[in-house]
Design a protein around this nucleic acid. Sequence first.
DNA 1: CTGTTAGCGCGTTCAT
DNA 2: ATGAACGCGCTAACAG
Lengths: 336, 336
Amino acid sequence: MTRPPRRARAVDVAARAGVSVATVSFVVNGKAEGRVSPATRLRVLDAIAALGYVTDASARALATGRRRQVALLAHDMTNPFTAQVAAGAAAGIAEATEGTGHLLLLLASDDAEPDTEPVGAATVDGVLINYPGTLPAGRPDLPVVHLDDPAAGGHQVSMDVVVGARELAAHLAGLGHRHVVFVDSNRPWSTFVERRTAFTDEFARRVPGAVVTGDRSGIDLAGAVGHATAALEGWQRSGATAVVTATDVQALGVLSALAAAGVPVPGRLSVAAFDDIPFAAVSAPPLTTVRLPARELGHRGAVLLSRVIDGTAVDPAPVVLPAQLVVRGSTGPATM
Amino acid sequence: MTRPPRRARAVDVAARAGVSVATVSFVVNGKAEGRVSPATRLRVLDAIAALGYVTDASARALATGRRRQVALLAHDMTNPFTAQVAAGAAAGIAEATEGTGHLLLLLASDDAEPDTEPVGAATVDGVLINYPGTLPAGRPDLPVVHLDDPAAGGHQVSMDVVVGARELAAHLAGLGHRHVVFVDSNRPWSTFVERRTAFTDEFARRVPGAVVTGDRSGIDLAGAVGHATAALEGWQRSGATAVVTATDVQALGVLSALAAAGVPVPGRLSVAAFDDIPFAAVSAPPLTTVRLPARELGHRGAVLLSRVIDGTAVDPAPVVLPAQLVVRGSTGPATM
DNA sequence: CTGTTAGCGCGTTCAT
DNA sequence: ATGAACGCGCTAACAG
């Protein structure tokens, strides 16, 4: 009665069904068509169910060379944008592989590089990089898709940040703003460079004598609040009438600092940003921001990566997702 | 000149170093001590570096039975609490395994159960469940640690929600509130049940004739906003002077709905919740909430799981992390 | 101190 | 239509 609680193997299934392991393998992998008679196929299926047999992933991986896993290299899961990318990626890989593919989460610890050991150890069939910079060499032919890194080569999916930035510039210009502070991220990622330069260029083009003061802060909430609190007075003295940040998280920090200091938004200072994370819609006032489709980014990236892995996608054709300005209550007419 | 871009294997290293694969295996796994001479060890190391050799994870897993991977079963990575748990878990597993362990992310798609196929396929050495309910059977002896699920048996780490809930009840009672609306989560997870009953009991104990009106909403931002907007009028008519929600996300939604309706907080209605996600500190007004150490939860859970896996932790001794009320601006004296 | 070798569990070609 | 046998790359017991 005391059956060994050991996992059933293909041999066990084969024995119970009175066939060979090869037959079991065929049935399990859907290659029974024209090779295994429907009757025996059913017997095998029964045995599988009875034994609770599940193919061992490591053994299969060793035999096939496919791991059925993909890694997501990201920086900080605590950032809502990243979290959405991850959620989208998980859904995308599941969808593209019909539930057989899975996501290995590789996060950077603090400011270090994320741990890429699994990549070298061939634990994954491909990598999704939501992180600037390339992989450590060693696996030159490993399928890779870059996310939101317009400067990256190869396969990538990004968002039309430039269009969104221009819309934002036009919006602020139309409200009469002439001097804005642009709070960049203190990480020199290409997506942030693009946000800043596209905004700055368009704003300068539309507003004669425009002034865009550069500034930067961490993109974590605490860092953003601290920076904004300290920089606030300088912003006011400079005559700026609007603050644009590279990310929503920073803007939420700015909003908080302004509220604490009793500065009316958008009465005294307008605030706008990029991302449109869910919390941007419920801040006080709700945040005007450039909507960047984070979840879609992860989703499309995962689907693309799956295609690269199975060889369907060969030549790198960058996918660019649309971005769009969402006007809410944090921006208003410029007032000096 | 055209070297095959193939990954180097142990045999290749062995050949280059003039030793056998066993020797390579020993030095790779740090078992060279007293088995391999320092000199040959160095030769092997050189060969490894020269060839860029990295042990194949699948092969090693097949041979050792250890996958060096752990799964995190979670519901919605978009929820900041979950994201923090994930970040903590990733850090914890890396720490406990000195960088050799990794995190497989298994998310539930919408309201379905999360995909547990990798668990059955033995892709992981253990599972971290931040999700109510147990694993599908089939692997009864698989190490499991439940997170924030006080009703779960076995190994688990949770938080002292009861203490926090009582502090909150005392706080509101002290401010003169007698009628509060408790907006529960619409998911019947034990952690939420605990939050509600602990709060309700303590509040009733402290306030003679106390009224706690029950209510519930989704714990996603959109759902919370929608619900609050619709329920708002009823809350006001009922004579409630405070709203307590099961999670910060819901409270943020409530705050947003109240702001849109022009209801002063805490002037007309006080608002409080559980979690203390980062955004709770920057809302307008900043949210009074019971701080639940999410990151720590994930971290400790991962460390504990590692111990269970390597057999260090045997008897399930539930770990309970402290919770503590953080009073901010969203709660004030009751006013009718 | 070092080499040989038998598994680990599955996929797949080649006979039958 | 089915089974036998080899290989995937590595670990670990055993022999020397």
